[in-house]
Design a protein around this nucleic acid. Structure first.
Length: 126
DNA sequence: GGTTTGACCATAA
DNA sequence: CTTATGGCCAAAC
């Protein structure tokens, strides 16, 4: 049988083997010009409480990845880790898509640009 | 195979 | 507004 089939988390659990891959897949669904939050991605995967792990999964992305990680901000609509090199890259890439980001990292009209993953399966629901 | 490293969120005071 | 706390664990080294 499959000697290294895509592992899945144990029943009742959201995080587990392959978690990073599932996070990346979700983030790929966010269209240009839209943003979402770590917690929203976590909720789409089944549990808001794992928002932190979504951050971990994005931090683990290799440079040059096709995952649009820059479209993921905090639940308060601000760029995370402000001041860091990734934050500056993120703000630049967002502005390039027409998303206005204030100098303090706040995404303007965040609630209006927030992508909600309504197309996906989210057991957790809102 | 144990240790290290990570970009969060809700709530309370 | 700030600080603290509990929730959460894979992947790379």
């Amino acid at each position: 049988m499959a000697r290294s089939a895509p592992r899945s988390p144990e029943p009742g659990r959201v995080v587990g083997p392959g978690f990073h891959a599932r996070v990346h897949e979700r983030v790929r669904q966010v269209p240009p010009g839209w943003v979402t939050s770590y917690g929203d991605v976590a909720a789409a995967l089944g549990a808001r409480s794992v928002a932190r792990h979504v951050g971990f999964a994005l931090a683990a992305l290799p440079a040059g990845s096709d995952v649009p990680w820059h479209r993921v901000v905090t639940a308060r609509g601000t760029v995370a880790a402000l001041g860091s090199s990734v934050a500056r890259t993120q703000a630049r890439r967002l502005r390039a898509e027409g998303v206005r980001v204030a100098p303090n990292g706040r995404v303007q009209e965040f609630s209006r640009r927030r992508w909600l993953f309504l197309d996906g399966t989210s057991p957790g629901q809102w």
